[in-house]
Nucleic acid binder design. Structure first.
Length: 163
DNA sequence: GCCAACGTTGGC
DNA sequence: GCCAACGTTGGC
Protein backbone atom coordinates (compact mmCIF):
# COMPACT_ATOMS: atom_id res chain seq x y z
CA UNK A 1 0.00 0.00 0.00
CA UNK A 2 1.18 3.50 -0.81
CA UNK A 3 0.50 6.70 1.06
CA UNK A 4 -0.37 10.17 -0.14
CA UNK A 5 -1.39 13.62 0.93
CA UNK A 6 -4.20 15.33 -0.96
CA UNK A 7 -4.94 19.01 -0.60
CA UNK A 8 -8.28 20.67 -0.87
CA UNK A 9 -9.51 24.10 0.01
CA UNK A 10 -12.26 23.54 2.57
CA UNK A 11 -14.29 26.38 1.06
CA UNK A 12 -14.36 24.33 -2.15
CA UNK A 13 -14.46 20.79 -0.81
CA UNK A 14 -13.91 19.91 2.85
CA UNK A 15 -13.50 16.73 4.84
CA UNK A 16 -17.07 17.23 6.04
CA UNK A 17 -18.27 17.26 2.45
CA UNK A 18 -16.55 13.93 1.88
CA UNK A 19 -17.88 12.56 5.17
CA UNK A 20 -21.37 13.22 3.82
CA UNK A 21 -20.72 11.95 0.32
CA UNK A 22 -18.69 8.90 1.41
CA UNK A 23 -17.03 8.63 -2.00
CA UNK A 24 -16.06 11.43 -4.35
CA UNK A 25 -14.25 12.05 -7.61
CA UNK A 26 -11.13 14.07 -6.85
CA UNK A 27 -11.84 16.55 -9.60
CA UNK A 28 -10.10 19.74 -10.59
CA UNK A 29 -6.46 18.68 -10.55
CA UNK A 30 -4.90 20.78 -13.32
CA UNK A 31 -1.25 20.14 -12.77
CA UNK A 32 0.60 17.54 -14.80
CA UNK A 33 2.78 16.33 -11.97
CA UNK A 34 -0.18 15.80 -9.67
CA UNK A 35 -2.12 14.14 -12.47
CA UNK A 36 0.75 11.78 -13.18
CA UNK A 37 0.98 10.83 -9.53
CA UNK A 38 -2.70 9.87 -9.57
CA UNK A 39 -2.37 8.06 -12.89
CA UNK A 40 0.90 6.24 -12.37
CA UNK A 41 1.31 6.08 -8.63
CA UNK A 42 -2.04 5.44 -7.02
CA UNK A 43 -3.38 1.98 -6.46
CA UNK A 44 -6.67 0.76 -5.11
CA UNK A 45 -6.69 0.84 -1.33
CA UNK A 46 -3.91 3.39 -1.02
CA UNK A 47 -4.36 5.72 1.92
CA UNK A 48 -4.13 9.48 1.89
CA UNK A 49 -4.20 12.31 4.38
CA UNK A 50 -6.91 14.81 3.56
CA UNK A 51 -5.32 18.23 3.94
CA UNK A 52 -7.11 21.57 4.18
CA UNK A 53 -5.21 24.29 2.35
CA UNK A 54 -5.60 28.00 1.79
CA UNK A 55 -7.67 28.44 4.93
CA UNK A 56 -7.50 29.66 8.49
CA UNK A 57 -6.07 26.43 9.89
CA UNK A 58 -4.16 24.56 7.21
CA UNK A 59 -3.32 20.95 8.07
CA UNK A 60 -4.34 17.31 8.03
CA UNK A 61 -7.97 16.77 8.94
CA UNK A 62 -8.79 13.24 7.84
CA UNK A 63 -7.91 9.96 6.20
CA UNK A 64 -9.24 8.71 2.89
CA UNK A 65 -8.61 5.74 0.61
CA UNK A 66 -8.34 5.33 -3.14
CA UNK A 67 -11.49 3.58 -4.30
CA UNK A 68 -11.18 3.96 -8.07
CA UNK A 69 -8.12 4.28 -10.27
CA UNK A 70 -7.55 7.37 -12.39
CA UNK A 71 -10.10 8.05 -15.15
CA UNK A 72 -11.01 11.17 -17.17
CA UNK A 73 -12.14 14.12 -15.05
CA UNK A 74 -15.67 15.00 -16.21
CA UNK A 75 -15.29 18.67 -15.35
CA UNK A 76 -12.81 19.24 -18.17
CA UNK A 77 -15.62 18.65 -20.68
CA UNK A 78 -18.15 20.88 -18.97
CA UNK A 79 -18.29 24.38 -20.43
CA UNK A 80 -19.94 25.66 -17.30
CA UNK A 81 -17.31 24.30 -14.98
CA UNK A 82 -14.48 26.43 -13.73
CA UNK A 83 -12.31 23.43 -14.55
CA UNK A 84 -13.37 23.35 -18.20
CA UNK A 85 -10.46 22.80 -20.57
CA UNK A 86 -11.24 23.68 -24.19
CA UNK A 87 -8.11 21.88 -25.32
CA UNK A 88 -9.30 18.57 -23.94
CA UNK A 89 -11.39 16.10 -25.87
CA UNK A 90 -13.23 12.90 -24.98
CA UNK A 91 -10.97 11.03 -27.35
CA UNK A 92 -7.88 12.55 -25.83
CA UNK A 93 -8.64 13.73 -22.31
CA UNK A 94 -5.94 15.69 -20.60
CA UNK A 95 -7.06 15.54 -16.97
CA UNK A 96 -7.78 12.60 -14.73
CA UNK A 97 -9.08 11.98 -11.28
CA UNK A 98 -9.31 9.08 -8.88
CA UNK A 99 -12.24 8.40 -6.57
CA UNK A 100 -11.50 8.70 -2.89
CA UNK A 101 -13.53 7.21 -0.07
CA UNK A 102 -14.02 8.68 3.36
CA UNK A 103 -12.41 6.70 6.16
CA UNK A 104 -12.41 9.05 9.12
CA UNK A 105 -11.88 12.54 10.34
CA UNK A 106 -8.86 13.18 12.51
CA UNK A 107 -8.00 15.97 14.89
CA UNK A 108 -6.34 18.84 13.11
CA UNK A 109 -2.64 18.16 12.66
CA UNK A 110 -1.73 21.68 11.69
CA UNK A 111 0.93 22.69 9.23
CA UNK A 112 2.67 24.29 12.16
CA UNK A 113 2.65 21.04 14.13
CA UNK A 114 3.93 19.06 11.14
CA UNK A 115 6.81 21.50 10.79
CA UNK A 116 7.82 21.05 14.40
CA UNK A 117 8.78 17.39 13.93
CA UNK A 118 12.19 16.62 12.50
CA UNK A 119 10.95 13.20 11.39
CA UNK A 120 8.59 14.94 8.97
CA UNK A 121 11.03 17.48 7.61
CA UNK A 122 11.25 15.56 4.33
CA UNK A 123 7.51 15.66 3.63
CA UNK A 124 6.94 17.18 0.25
CA UNK A 125 4.04 19.27 1.45
CA UNK A 126 6.37 21.04 3.87
CA UNK A 127 8.94 21.95 1.29
CA UNK A 128 9.34 25.54 0.34
CA UNK A 129 7.31 26.65 -2.61
CA UNK A 130 5.48 23.37 -2.78
CA UNK A 131 2.26 23.72 -4.70
CA UNK A 132 1.43 20.16 -5.66
CA UNK A 133 -2.06 19.19 -4.57
CA UNK A 134 -1.16 15.51 -4.54
CA UNK A 135 2.10 14.40 -2.96
CA UNK A 136 3.52 11.04 -1.93
CA UNK A 137 4.04 10.31 1.76
CA UNK A 138 6.56 7.69 2.85
CA UNK A 139 5.49 4.80 5.06
CA UNK A 140 7.71 6.18 7.81
CA UNK A 141 6.12 9.62 7.59
CA UNK A 142 2.67 8.05 7.52
CA UNK A 143 3.32 5.97 10.61
CA UNK A 144 4.78 8.97 12.39
CA UNK A 145 1.68 11.06 11.78
CA UNK A 146 -0.52 8.12 12.78
CA UNK A 147 1.39 8.00 16.04
CA UNK A 148 0.74 11.71 16.57
CA UNK A 149 -2.93 11.02 16.02
CA UNK A 150 -2.97 8.13 18.47
CA UNK A 151 -1.29 10.33 21.02
CA UNK A 152 -4.24 12.65 20.80
CA UNK A 153 -3.23 16.22 21.45
CA UNK A 154 -0.47 18.30 19.99
CA UNK A 155 2.76 18.25 21.93
CA UNK A 156 6.16 19.68 21.12
CA UNK A 157 8.79 17.25 19.86
CA UNK A 158 11.06 15.67 22.44
CA UNK A 159 8.49 15.79 25.18
CA UNK A 160 7.47 12.34 26.31
CA UNK A 161 4.23 12.26 28.15
CA UNK A 162 1.87 9.61 29.45
CA UNK A 163 0.81 7.04 26.83
C1' DG B 1 14.82 25.64 -27.09
C1' DC B 2 15.20 30.00 -24.50
C1' DC B 3 13.13 32.97 -21.39
C1' DA B 4 10.16 36.98 -20.12
C1' DA B 5 5.60 37.66 -19.00
C1' DC B 6 1.83 36.04 -16.93
C1' DG B 7 -1.23 33.17 -13.96
C1' DT B 8 -1.85 30.33 -9.86
C1' DT B 9 -1.05 28.49 -5.30
C1' DG B 10 -1.19 28.95 -0.63
C1' DG B 11 0.93 30.54 3.72
C1' DC B 12 0.87 34.51 6.25
C1' DG C 1 -4.50 41.39 0.42
C1' DC C 2 0.45 40.53 -0.11
C1' DC C 3 3.86 38.17 -2.31
C1' DA C 4 7.30 34.27 -2.97
C1' DA C 5 7.65 30.39 -5.58
C1' DC C 6 6.31 27.84 -9.12
C1' DG C 7 4.14 26.26 -13.68
C1' DT C 8 2.61 27.57 -18.25
C1' DT C 9 2.52 30.20 -22.42
C1' DG C 10 4.10 32.07 -26.51
C1' DG C 11 7.24 35.08 -29.25
C1' DC C 12 11.45 34.62 -31.21
Amino acid sequence: MRYWLMKSEPSVYSIDDLAKEKTAAWQGVRNYQARNLMRDGMRLGDRAFFYHSNCEEPGIVGIVEVRRLAYPDETQFNRNSEYFDPASTRRNPRWLNVDVGFMRKTRLVSLDELRRHKALAGMQVLKRGNRLSVTPVTAVEWQFVMKLLRRGTARPPGEDGPP
